[in-house]
Design a binder for these strands. Structure first.
Length: 444
RNA sequence: GCAGCAGUAGCUCAGCUGGUUAGAGCACUAGUUUGUGGAACUAGGGGUCGGUGGUUCGAACCCACCCUGCUGUACCA
């Protein structure tokens, strides 16, 4: 079958890239159709920006000599570095900065698009994936932040999740800002390490996180992670502050009030939600699934959140002098698909064609006639695409999960009555051509 | 990136402490059935045992490096 293995092109995929098959794509399409419905209802505009941006436009300043792949895929075009986008927020900021004078403010847009990250893939995590983003640009109103949570919630429920299966966690950057004032640290690296450590509370638990806040932690593979070196007094203070269950910052109090007006309850205040450490300035949200997700071997895996977002009031401003406070949320669609396929028995019908068997090429016009009758009735149908013995054709129909085959050979043609064979029951019936449509519809 | 484990047919795996032409199940192909699938039976194809180099009379098996995968960890704008 295969000789000369050498010098043949590789059939392997690059690390972190995958082929996606129909089953998965149909679930994805289902989610996308729900997203579009909800976004239209909420009055958002649909936008598409290109896959590539200048690296500096999306926050990457790539030094010429270092390898230009610090988390992103990049190449040098003439004199400037280009990068594949790693999210949809940075391109949005760029878009708003570029078109600021023309667009209505506040600008509400949603976007669906592939993004790429040059990093280590994990289960359900690839280096190329589809993201959905909804953002408000040009408003400080916390109504916007609250509405994002409501809208995501509606999308998830339209996709079949109930209120027990997901939760929106909210917090605010203001909490950690206040905290840093209290422990009086202006050491930026220490602040970063602290934030990263706090981000892991739900995964590692307080005991482990406290090690990270102090000297450091050794994980179970024996790898050591350097800690933030805070004093135990400060560590205790942080723990005390972050274990509070009611928010004390003004922004969150207001959001909670708005949630109440919306009658929105499926959220939870969680001060350990930190997220994207650089640009958030206010409320932050995280969308979490509350059921276990398993890998191919049936083992539960650390799935984490399927999306999140928050307020980023300074991002657009980076491009110039426009002051455009913004807030947004994004969902990793492929991860959601991965989880949903496991959780739900999807009844999304993968419509497979009725197969019309070919007995004799000279009768082709008869087959085409049958095929047209079915297709005109919006029934998926095909003449067996090949030249094989009947047995082969049956095996083919069986393998593609065809609901039925139509047998129209010499004998049937003489009578003008094709035989329909139901592939599930194995039953065959002889039927006149005018009844074909009805009979097939009974089967599919 | 770091660490642990793994890599034998398309898939799942066996291969005893290194010993002649490397095995099984499933899948595939052909036939039993020249107009009938999902079952059975028969026969057959398919592997330089992840790669490269080394140790050895001899390597799928031992050693080194590399690649890939899994798990954890780090980073994630």
């Amino acid at each position: 079958m295969k000789k000369d293995k050498k010098n043949k092109p590789s059939k392997e995929l690059p690390l972190g890239f995958v082929d996606r098959q129909e089953k998965e794509l149909l679930v994805r399409d289902f989610i996308i159709s729900n997203i579009k419905k909800v976004m239209i209802k909420y009055g958002f505009q649909y936008l598409e920006t290109p896959s590539f941006e200048y690296s500096d436009s999306i926050g990457k300043f790539l030094p010429d000599k270092d390898r230009p792949d610090e988390g992103v895929f990049s190449f040098k075009d003439e004199k400037k570095w280009l990068s594949l986008r790693y999210d949809l927020t940075a391109p949005l900021a760029r878009y708003v900065a570029k078109n600021y004078l023309e667009i209505a403010k506040p600008f509400k847009r949603y976007q669906l698009g592939t993004v790429w990250r040059n990093e280590k893939p994990g289960p359900g995590r690839f280096r190329e994936f589809l993201q959905f983003d909804a953002d408000f640009v040009g408003t400080k109103s916390l109504q916007a932040d609250a509405e994002l949570c409501v809208l995501i919630s509606e999308i998830l429920e339209k996709c079949g999740l109930n209120k027990k299966e997901y939760i929106i966690k909210i917090s605010s950057r203001k909490i950690t800002e206040d905290l840093f004032k209290k422990i009086k640290t202006d050491n930026n690296e220490q602040r970063l390490i602290t934030l990263r450590a706090l981000d892991k509370i739900d995964r590692l638990g307080w005991d482990e996180v406290k090690k990270l806040l102090g000297k450091g932690r050794k994980d179970k593979s024996g790898d050591f992670t350097k800690g933030a070196n805070l004093s135990s007094k400060n560590i205790d203070l942080i723990e005390k502050e972050l274990k509070k269950t009611t928010p004390e910052t003004e922004d969150l109090k207001e959001i909670l009030k708005i949630f109440k007006d919306y009658n929105f309850e499926n959220f939870e205040f969680d001060p350990s939600v930190i997220r994207g450490l650089e640009y958030y300035t206010g409320p932050i949200f995280e969308v979490n699934l509350k059921f276990d997700v398993k890998n191919e071997k049936g083992k539960a895996i650390q799935f984490g959140s399927i999306g999140g977002g928050g307020r980023y009031d300074n991002l657009v401003n980076n491009f110039g002098n426009y002051d455009a406070p913004a807030t947004g949320i994004s969902i990793g669609l492929d991860r959601l698909v991965y989880a949903l396929i496991q959780k739900k028995e999807f009844k999304i019908k993968q419509s497979r064609p009725i197969v019309i068997c070919v007995f004799d090429k000279d009768s082709m016009q008869e087959y085409i006639r049958l095929q047209k009758i079915l297709r005109d009735s919006e029934i998926s149908a095909e003449i067996y695409p090949g030249e094989s013995k009947l047995k082969k054709q049956m095996e083919y129909a069986n393998k593609i999960n065809a609901p039925a085959v139509i047998l129209y050979g010499e004998n049937e043609i003489k009578l003008g009555k094709p035989t329909i064979k139901n592939l599930k029951s194995g039953k065959e019936i002889s039927i006149s051509i005018k009844d074909i449509e009805n009979e097939i519809k009974k089967i599919i």
